[in-house]
Nucleic acid binder design. Sequence first.
DNA 1: CTGAAAGCGCTAACAC
DNA 2: GTGTTAGCGCTTTCAG
Lengths: 343, 343
Amino acid sequence: MKLTLEDIGRLAGVSRSTVSRVINNQPNVHDDVRANVLEVIERTGYAPNAAARSLVSGRSGVIGLVIPSRVHAIFEDPYFSRLIQGISAASNSSGNMLSLFLFQSAEEETDLYPRVVKAGFLDGLIVTATRMGDPLLASLTGSDLPVVIVGRPDTGGVSYVDVDNHDGGVKAAVHLYELGHRKIGLLGAPVSTTAGLDRLNGFVQGLATCGMALDPKLRVDGDFSESGGYEAMQKLAKQRPDAVFAASDTMAFGALRALQEHGISVPQDMAIVGFDGMPASEKSIPALTTIRQPVAETGTRAVQVLNDLISGAASAPVVEILPVELVVRQSTDSTAPALGGRR
Amino acid sequence: MKLTLEDIGRLAGVSRSTVSRVINNQPNVHDDVRANVLEVIERTGYAPNAAARSLVSGRSGVIGLVIPSRVHAIFEDPYFSRLIQGISAASNSSGNMLSLFLFQSAEEETDLYPRVVKAGFLDGLIVTATRMGDPLLASLTGSDLPVVIVGRPDTGGVSYVDVDNHDGGVKAAVHLYELGHRKIGLLGAPVSTTAGLDRLNGFVQGLATCGMALDPKLRVDGDFSESGGYEAMQKLAKQRPDAVFAASDTMAFGALRALQEHGISVPQDMAIVGFDGMPASEKSIPALTTIRQPVAETGTRAVQVLNDLISGAASAPVVEILPVELVVRQSTDSTAPALGGRR
DNA sequence: CTGAAAGCGCTAACAC
DNA sequence: GTGTTAGCGCTTTCAG
């Protein structure tokens, strides 16, 4: 039995307008009437029809989350799980529904705009992991749909939420320098991503403030993956740096594996700092010193910014940079307790 | 500029009905007219309004995916990533949108039914990882919303898609037996899950067909996690089985870690079979023999079944069991090549 | 404070 | 083949 406002009104002895007012918490309804209507709603289990509602209001109560095609990493990388978790939690608590768009191909991506966005199906969109020069991003920013990017995009004028990758690079460099290391290498992330670029630049600047420069021979880039880190460290190890900043925890794990095979012990022979603060970084052997980024919070903030954009409480571009934190564990500190600790 | 059917009709010199017919690929439209209308649509970039459409059609084109609260495992377990991937791909190709419901608390879960389901926001629902006696499941099956469960539920009358966990247990037992092992143990999954139960029962039956029984001393259950597998193997190792079936790859990894610490080598001292066929099982040292389950395909099938339910092409309960496959690698075969191979 | 009435943009009879 | 006409269930003026 499909109930409508009209039905509830009849049952409560009022008009549908009054019921509508009650449902939407509007003033100008007598308390008695309100109570009565609420009772009927409760008793009948009535719920207003979403389609009718959004047809007239122009709002769907749905926000979209786009994860582009090339991210096969979602299979392995806990980053996305944590991000989705944060975004989902924030959507729930802000009364939104979350629609997930995982694209397998560029075609599916192109389809998004006409089929979903223009149909008014979404109130707003969160886009993760855009590449440099992403055409999707371009088509989206052209529309009047509120959009928030997770991570710094390479174009201006768009709202985004990011962590302070640059500062993370600085912190890693300074930490290693202060530990007394002077032959400091970088296992970099792809500079085709803004995250990789920012971490690199921060690292270089951090070294600079210590009066040092990054020796190009001591820099090898990986692709964010474990095996990428492994391979990069194979090359890097030959130069025998006494400390290395790996621009992602996952790559750091690969690096640790390579070092183990080479019989190079961490941190005695080489100190390692990762980036991410993934749960696994606590359990690795040795426990990994890392730059912790607030992944779930990034997602949460993205939703909040998006909601502000949707409600008009803010207007694009809104930019928000979340702080990162150095977490010192065994991989840079031979005196730390067995499971590492925070300082 | 928001375009409507009326606008397109005016631009094309026809009525809105004709435009509607063209959009919905209905017959009874003159070819010339159809072409002209399509041209106008193309030129203007018109897209029909989703809300209006679903208000009148009663369909939203959205299916929901529910992952209950207690699954914090989503942080770590690649299973869910792969499942979501499969579900998302199938949704895309069947022209549906996917709405994701990750719940943090039981309250949010209870909220689902009134706020989302009764509002007619969804055409159907896929629910994963239900517990035994799940109240959510009960409330859902009471409604007339098409629902498909991923994994065997503990109640009847519901449609579900599952892998053949029982057969996986059988295959693991027979494989170990055929390798000549006679002291075969089980690192079980929680029997509070149907998957754990089915794998256990299959394993016992597999042993039985080989004329063997599972020694209760050789069975320790874990909780699906790496550390759970580690701890379980700590206990199990004392009994010195010469082969163990670990009911999930992740637990098997934990078991391998424990064995390594004990100096028990795999497969020489103990053969190990996992369950899942996760990507990481190929890279573990030694590469893990495992029962591979088609995770993404499970998701795909769930969507297809759901679509059948929605369209009326099928009626509940539909049950679909996907086959699993034994993948032999190093952990049960000391003669296998370094990185393991399939047989 | 409350009700009547006018749509939101679309689909689906029903006429022509 | 094509246009006309009712609604789908809701929000929102506008009267009272």
